[in-house]
Computed example of a mutant assay.
Amino acid sequence: MPVSALVTGDAVVLGLRPARLPSRALALLIDMVVAWAAYLIVSFALLLATASLDDAAQAAIAVALFVLVLVGAPIAVETLTHGRSLGKAACGLRVVRDDGGPIRFRHALVRGAMGVVEILLTFGVVACVASLVSGRGRRVGDVFAGTLVVRERVPVARAAAVPPPPPWLMGRFAGLDLSGVPDALWLAVRQYLTRMGQLDAQVSWGMSVRLADDLVARTGAPAPEGVPPAAYLAAVMAERQARDAQRAFGAARAADRDVGPGTAAPAWIATPPSSLSASAAPSASVAPWATPAPATPAPSTPPAPSAPKQGTEPGPDTPSATGFVPPA
């Protein structure tokens, strides 16, 4: 069964499996049986209570009862349960927005209004045809409401973590404009960073150069000289995730961001690693990759007690290697 490619703000693809016609039909059958049973019981009770009224009043009550029970009740249930009715809960289904978020009242209202035509008045024929034609099994109401019925009872794979950038690049791109970078490019950068250790050295280097060039073209700001492309990609990705965390959780939860707009950079960030002593540089987590050497010689690094010799590039087995060559 195909998986819906929905991309979140962290450039993570949501593995949502759209519900197909058999499961949706079974859920709809359960919902309709419950709704029609409630409609008949309430209609019989009102018929006994309004027997003394004239025909016009009884017809008005019947129309109002039809709208409230068969149209209003499903809308209210989907709104309060965020997309789960009794039939959908039994079949493990849920209605979500196109971006994977929970639906609101307006989504449920559009789906319910269109359901009167494609389900009640046509006995589900229009809904079945639309679900078969649609690539993700959506009926007409889902198309107009911008929703999707997905399966919830499926195993969800955990997204691989993006390796951290070197400490001398943290906060360096705080003022970079990332609004012009599309989700497809963020997804490509994330997939490269999480899999670069599995690629051939030359292939990995070529991919990092192309992705860095695309990112520079989208942001309009050139990459700093002497910074390896993979380090540049990791630093920009960390900046974007820090901004998303700050917007979602507020300034108190944005502790992962070392430098923000209007904040003075610490000395170990503002000063290149070449001018810092070994005791002044803070300890940083080791990045689980090694950046391949470019075609031209990379800037040399002064010797440090725990660093490789000058002029040699750290390998993947070196415990103190960050995977990047800092600028001179």
Rank of each mutant, 00 (worst) to 15 (best):
residue 146 G to M: 10
residue 147 T to F: 10
residue 151 R to Y: 00
residue 151 R to G: 03
residue 151 R to S: 02
residue 152 E to H: 03
residue 153 R to A: 06
residue 153 R to P: 01
residue 155 P to M: 05
residue 155 P to Q: 10
residue 156 V to I: 06
residue 157 A to R: 13
residue 157 A to I: 08
residue 157 A to S: 12
residue 161 A to P: 03
residue 161 A to H: 12
residue 161 A to K: 10
residue 165 P to W: 01
residue 166 P to I: 05
residue 167 P to Y: 12
residue 168 W to F: 12
residue 170 M to P: 03
residue 171 G to K: 09
residue 172 R to T: 13
residue 173 F to W: 12
residue 173 F to C: 07
residue 175 G to D: 14
residue 175 G to K: 08
residue 178 L to S: 11
residue 179 S to R: 15
residue 179 S to D: 13
residue 181 V to D: 04
residue 182 P to M: 08
residue 185 L to V: 13
residue 188 A to P: 01
residue 189 V to I: 15
residue 190 R to H: 00
residue 191 Q to H: 14
residue 191 Q to E: 11
residue 191 Q to F: 10
residue 192 Y to K: 00
residue 192 Y to Q: 07
residue 193 L to W: 02
residue 193 L to V: 05
residue 194 T to K: 01
residue 196 M to Y: 03
residue 196 M to K: 11
residue 197 G to R: 11
residue 198 Q to D: 15
residue 199 L to V: 08
residue 201 A to S: 13
residue 202 Q to C: 12
residue 202 Q to T: 15
residue 204 S to M: 14
residue 205 W to L: 07
residue 206 G to F: 02
residue 208 S to I: 01
residue 209 V to Q: 13
residue 210 R to Q: 14
residue 211 L to I: 03
residue 212 A to R: 11
residue 213 D to R: 15
residue 214 D to G: 11
residue 214 D to M: 12
residue 214 D to V: 01
residue 215 L to Q: 07
residue 215 L to M: 14
residue 217 A to D: 09
residue 219 T to H: 02
residue 220 G to W: 03
residue 222 P to K: 05
residue 225 E to N: 06
residue 226 G to M: 06
residue 228 P to F: 05
residue 228 P to G: 07
residue 229 P to W: 03
residue 229 P to A: 11
residue 230 A to F: 09
residue 230 A to M: 04
residue 230 A to N: 04
residue 234 A to F: 11
residue 235 A to Y: 00
residue 235 A to I: 08
residue 235 A to E: 01
residue 236 V to A: 03
residue 237 M to H: 14
residue 238 A to S: 07
residue 239 E to K: 07
residue 242 A to Y: 03
residue 243 R to Y: 11
residue 244 D to S: 12
residue 245 A to I: 12
residue 247 R to D: 13
residue 248 A to I: 09
residue 252 A to P: 01
residue 254 A to C: 07
residue 255 A to C: 01
residue 255 A to R: 14
